[in-house]
Amino acid sequence: MAHGGGGTAMRALIDTLFLEAFSATPHAPQEDQARLPLEALAAGGDRLAFTTDSFVVEPLEFPGGNIGTLAVCGTVNDLAVGGARPVALSAAFILAEGLELACLRRIVASMAECAREAGVRIVTGDTKVVPKGACDGLYVTTSGVGIIPAGCNISIAAAQPGDVVLVNGTLGDHGAAILCARGDLALDVAIASDCAPLGGLVETLLAAAPGTRSLRDATRGGVAGVLSELAEASAVSLTLDETALPVRPEVVGVCDILGLEPLFLANEGKLVAVVPQTEAETALAALRAHPLGRQAAAIGTVGEAGPYGPSVVLRNAFGGRRTVTMPSGEQLPRIC
């Protein structure tokens, strides 16, 4: 692959590759922007949700997904947890010289497939090719817009004492999958990333539990990261039941070896939901009925913030409790 404007033939090849994969109607006229009819948008709700994210991952392809599906799911999920129905995405690529064309093809194809599955179109995009070494293979930036139905007011600041905390499945699969996929850890376990678009699951949940207060996808920082933000934003204390946390035994095994905790590992198809106690059971049942929520679980409860403010506390099998705190950066040893 040659970079810049140099190789005209290559340029055309790449453009075709993206166009064929993403265009709903091939050979439609190419404008400089995607055009979304307002009327159709307005019919779906009363607010536009708009989000963007950049994706960098090593390796580019891993069990359960690749950088492309990650980019689609990440942005779709950021829209979905706001209660928005995803409508359209943009995708921008920075490619390094030397990236295998076959690899790019696979990634782009799975992106298109993932977008279809998520019910969203990739309507605009861009590609730049940079010299080898200026970028690690491939970077992707996706932005997305979605429509928030009228009356839907999901917020990280809306959790209330008495509410129940749910997750839609096992923790840390993506983080563990990436660590294993790097290969250099010589860990002989097969863990697939949980990378999945959660729009449908959110719709199901909101239909079953319209009183849902908060939703967050638990990506970097893991479920612990989301819960810390949630406790802070809602000014509440969260108590988690360690025995209720759904974790794959393979992930437990990897974490044991590496000295990591599933609660802090990244997910790409997991959300944390806070629902009123009265709707907890129906919400859980609805999640479990959905293919992306079969292992959903109630993992904790919301309580009043203590005299000194919000906190997240993990209760173990023996009833012991400890405070969950997020490291400010890279985790540094603490035991003296």
Binding site: D184, L185, A186, I257, L258, G259, L332
Partner: peptide, 13 residues
């Protein structure tokens, strides 16, 4: 696995 952690510096400060 431990040696790989040590080699790659993954949680092996």
């Amino acid at each position: 696995a431990l040696r790989a952690m040590i080699r790659t510096g993954l949680n092996a400060p």
